[in-house]
Amino acid sequence: MKEINVNRIFALAGFVLSGALLFGTRQFPERAVSAARYVNFLGITMGVLSLILLLSSIRENERNSERVVWIESPLHFVETLIGIIVYFVLINWLGFFVSSLLFLIILGWFLGYRKPLKLIASSVGLLLFIYFVFVRFLTVPVPSGILGGIL
């Protein structure tokens, strides 16, 4: 995608946001007048800036515009993204330490690290460090998950 097209899309998104803010403040009650005024100010400014962005992207020549590469390495990008999201969900079930160990090892492997022993050792070491700093030293709790309390 060319940058000017990106700009056009984001300018439109800016308009939508601006409109949403202005519409949103209309639901504010009478007593929140000052709160609404500030949000309206931001909304209008967003509208104006989006307009400038749109106009300048229309004026510009498409050929001079740079290409925006959204994702450079799709496989690793998707693996990482899915990995993090699954990890987030898993923490709610298995608790922090079990899911972190799985996450560190499996994503490390998927991203191309091929020395299993080193991978496991570094993951365990890192988690031990976290355990001592968080749980032992600062007594900051970590998510324990529904299965509860398994460290």
Binding site: L104, L107, L111
Partner: peptide
Amino acid sequence: AILIPAIAMLSVIGSYA
């Protein structure tokens, strides 16, 4: 391959704590 999961893990526990 080691750093990416490790930073993600630190980010998760950091934003939780």
